[in-house]
Design a protein around this nucleic acid. Structure first.
Length: 214
DNA sequence: ACATTAATTGTGT
DNA sequence: ACACAATTAATGT
């Protein structure tokens, strides 16, 4: 058993409490490392394992009919990709693409254990159900943010979400990237950011944004 | 250290 | 949204 993996899991996933389960995860889990910008899962590939993020952050996207990508959500350590559960269980090709937005570390659990553990471990079952629940709520929030909020509010929401989850208030991102995630034009984002800087909400730099009062 | 180039950001229409 | 200007970071000499 890999005690390193065991520790990483314990740290990032305190909800998964059962000792036996933790040990089994350390037994069958494999570490994977991804560099910033690397695609982790692509469209149309089979998902053969469930990824548990222990370090970094991951962006989950999907394509619409016209082929432009839209952001679904970001994943941070301690969260699991609900999509991957679904894909695994019905052994389906991926509808989504995931990409590391920072250098990231993942523990991968082979697909056969997902099912097995649901019957065997209460805390695993809860973990999966809770993941779905959280993701579902998150998507609802995203939907009404798109439907009802103005772009400046959406931007603020986006920034604060990306900020405090990494401990430091500095976000490494370009205006273009934000525009892409929010389906807006780069100029619009630049101008809104400029306004936020005037209001002392952020401090702008090349490739980075520092949050001040959010 | 300086010049060149590419990427990012800013502005006017 | 587009075109272009200005600025900044990266790279080569």
């Amino acid at each position: 058993m890999d005690t390193n993996i065991l520790q990483l899991i314990q740290r990032a996933y305190p909800n998964i409490a059962e000792k036996k389960l933790q040990e089994e995860m350390a037994e069958v889990g494999q570490m994977r490392y991804y560099k910033e910008g690397q695609t982790i899962m692509d469209y149309g590939t089979y998902v053969r394992y469930v990824p548990l993020l222990v370090k970094g952050s991951i962006k989950v996207m999907r394509q619409d009919e016209e082929g432009n990508e839209i952001l679904l959500y970001y994943l941070y350590p301690g969260e699991a990709c609900s999509m991957s559960f679904t894909c695994c269980m019905i052994n389906k090709k991926s509808d989504i693409r995931t990409e590391a937005t920072e250098d990231s570390e993942i523990v991968t659990i082979p697909l056969k254990f997902i099912d097995l553990w649901i019957g065997k471990y209460q805390s695993w079952k809860n973990f999966i159900l809770r993941s779905y629940d959280e993701r579902f709520k998150e998507l609802i929030r995203t939907i009404d943010s798109i439907a009802f909020k103005k772009m400046d509010e959406r931007l603020l929401e986006y920034l604060s979400k990306r900020g405090d989850l990494n401990k430091s208030p500095i976000i490494h991102v370009t205006h273009q990237e934000i525009a892409f995630d929010l389906n807006a034009s780069r100029e619009a984002i630049s101008r809104l950011l400029k306004q936020l800087e005037k209001d002392n909400k952020v401090k702008l730099g090349r490739n980075k944004i520092e949050l001040i009062n959010i």
